[in-house]
Design a protein around this nucleic acid. Structure first.
Lengths: 187, 187
DNA sequence: AGATGACATGTAAGGATTGACATGTCAATT
DNA sequence: AATTGACATGTCAATCCTTACATGTCATCT
């Protein structure tokens, strides 16, 4: 379901587009919250077309098909946003590593945690670059606010938050490791 | 792969356990970063057993099988933690809604955003309750630090961060809506 | 004219995931 | 003794997702 919704959202925001266009836009925008490759996108567009949520507006060169959102598709998107209670579950390998890291020796844990921090910083930089680019291309044609802007803000805050957490955790592990090898809980 | 690792981690932290035990522990701990139901856990344990990562230590009443981690399993877990570069991708329906919310009219967007904030607050309370419970049961048998403690800390920080973001976003939408058309709902 | 590389669309196989179904045991109640 | 409900384990079908394979077009360079 989420893939459909993401595609309807992209199509709504970008106007009529081909599967190829959508796949590229996916990578640079929605991919921060939901991922899909072209091998998933093409069949899904076909199914959505069969279900009447999108329609082929035109066929361009090289078999290129331009899709647009139908009124049914728009209704579906709105209904999902307004009425669907999103699952709170998150799946993240990074978070899984952070969960399991206390199983390692302090030295090993530090290695892992420092790598997590590095990845977190890289991710933060990436999002900051994205924000700069978006600010530069600020497009007043969009309804109001900017498509994906709130999500980008959320991503930035959580990325900063992650780096702070990594810093504090590294300090904590160093403190515990220094305090005494055997003593697990000096409090 | 991640499911395997999560199970190895749980088994390592909890000591020998049955599939049922692991499924329950999954729900209350790892589920915050990775989800799996019993219908995925039982077959995976069987495969892991065939691969020599875990072994059936004993068979209890009602066909209950007690698994333990083998040296190979321990090595696999450590290797994954130390050498595997976790994908930074995150999949979250909540984040997807936040991404798409600018496509709605301000009034509708406020409805969605307020619901997101409510869910965020509920999630935060849940994690805080979990922390209190964990602090109470602080178990010195664990190697050092507490299994999952860093992840819980991360979850708490990000949950707070999410609520702040929702608050600011709601204020932003209200401001924009007020500037353009009639004020929709300032409380 | 032929080679190259970016553009564009698709299929197929295999594994991961979910939700529903199915089975049987044990403890406590009626 | 029979019923109930929690315990415990599993399978199955359908869907989702990833990776790899396959095909063909168009523009540009040589």
């Amino acid at each position: 379901m989420s893939l459909r919704i993401a595609l309807l959202g992209l199509l709504t925001a970008s106007g009529p587009s081909s599967g190829y266009d959508l796949a590229k836009k996916f990578e640079t925008s929605v991919a921060h919250v939901w991922q899909a490759g072209h091998s998933q996108i093409y069949p899904e567009l076909a199914k959505m077309s069969a279900d009447g949520l999108v329609a082929v507006e035109a066929e361009g060169a090289r078999g290129r098909k331009i899709y647009r959102v139908t009124p049914d598709g728009d209704a579906e998107l709105r209904r999902w946003l307004l009425a669907h209670d999103p699952s709170t579950t998150v799946r993240s390998e990074t978070a899984l590593q952070s969960f399991l890291v206390p199983l390692l020796e302090p030295g090993e844990a530090l290695t892992v945690m420092r790598r997590l921090k590095d990845r977190g910083e890289a991710h933060l930089s990436e999002l900051e670059a994205l924000r700069v680019r978006k600010d530069a291309v600020m497009d007043p044609a969009h309804r109001w606010g900017m498509f994906g802007a709130y999500a980008l803000d959320l991503g930035l805050r959580q990325a900063r938050c992650f780096v702070e957490w990594a810093d504090d955790s590294i300090a904590d592990i160093e403190r515990r490791a220094g305090a005494g090898q055997g003593a697990p809980d000096p409090t």
